[in-house]
Design a protein around this nucleic acid. Structure first.
Lengths: 133, 133
DNA sequence: TTAATCATGGACTTACAATGTCTATGATAT
DNA sequence: ATATCATAGACATTGTAAGTCCATGATTAA
């Protein structure tokens, strides 16, 4: 049970886009470089964020990625769901008569985590980092 | 990000062992049957629970598995950790100067989930099921 | 209008972990 | 002794993550 490396890339990229927010897009080349990942692969990941309406891509020279949604509203959960999907942590395969009690209990636990990830916005971390430096 | 099927088997087996607690062990054959899984594979999984001190195994004729720890103390988290291990949900690979803020934030969220899984004991579900039937 | 610069999509590889199976072995009750 | 049990080791299979490579299309700057 681990979050994928792709989610790691997505979170750091969004962190960066929020920190350096500007009208001009930032190229995937540059975004990829400081994370030590290939531009094509990062692009594949960022496309999911585009489809989720979080960022937009501008192709052609001077193109790249920039924020689309309000940077104050973007939460951890938004990004994680965009990359990992929204299927629950646990789905019981066992053929029960009624619903599986174990499954619903784990769902409750997962929701506790999701609440926290939903409440925490990336902008909070950006501000925190600025205070630290 | 999913819990493994092995964890599903482990949880249901523990649920069953707690529900039917007795001095006589229950054979893996029987435990495997109602979950539609092979006995050898289930045994591999249950061995982890044995090593975690949760249950004990008795070999030879009339052998099988029985509880070792107090059934009132066994939580969801105990079982999940025994099977999945305790490595955190998220580990940032990126080379930061200081600690990764993203990683520590996800750790906070995970801890919220773990709190719930630690507080919820399997015996609670067993009692709940008995009330329902 | 041409060339250089960008993101995108599709078709691949590769690596690794989850999920098993099969079988020999060793322990134990009858 | 023998039938009944769990266990460990050596496999096989499958699926998914994590990339790579290249052709294509869009856009800007010259």
């Amino acid at each position: 049970m681990k979050l994928s490396k792709a989610t790691d890339y997505a979170l750091h990229t969004m962190f960066h886009l929020i920190k350096k927010e500007s009208a001009k897009p930032i190229g995937v080349q540059q975004l990829a470089e400081y994370q030590d990942v290939s531009p094509t692969y990062l692009s594949k990941i960022l496309t999911k964020l585009v489809k989720a309406g979080m960022i937009e891509s501008i192709s052609g020279a001077q193109g790249g990625y920039k924020l689309k949604r309000n940077k104050n509203d973007i939460s951890f959960l938004d990004i994680i769901h965009a990359i990992e999907g929204t299927t629950p942590l646990f789905e019981c395969d066992f053929h029960h008569h009624e619903g599986c009690l174990i499954q619903s209990e784990i769902k409750n636990a997962e929701e506790k985590m999701n609440e926290h990830l939903r409440e925490t916005k990336l902008i909070d971390l950006v501000k925190k980092e600025q205070r630290l430096s």
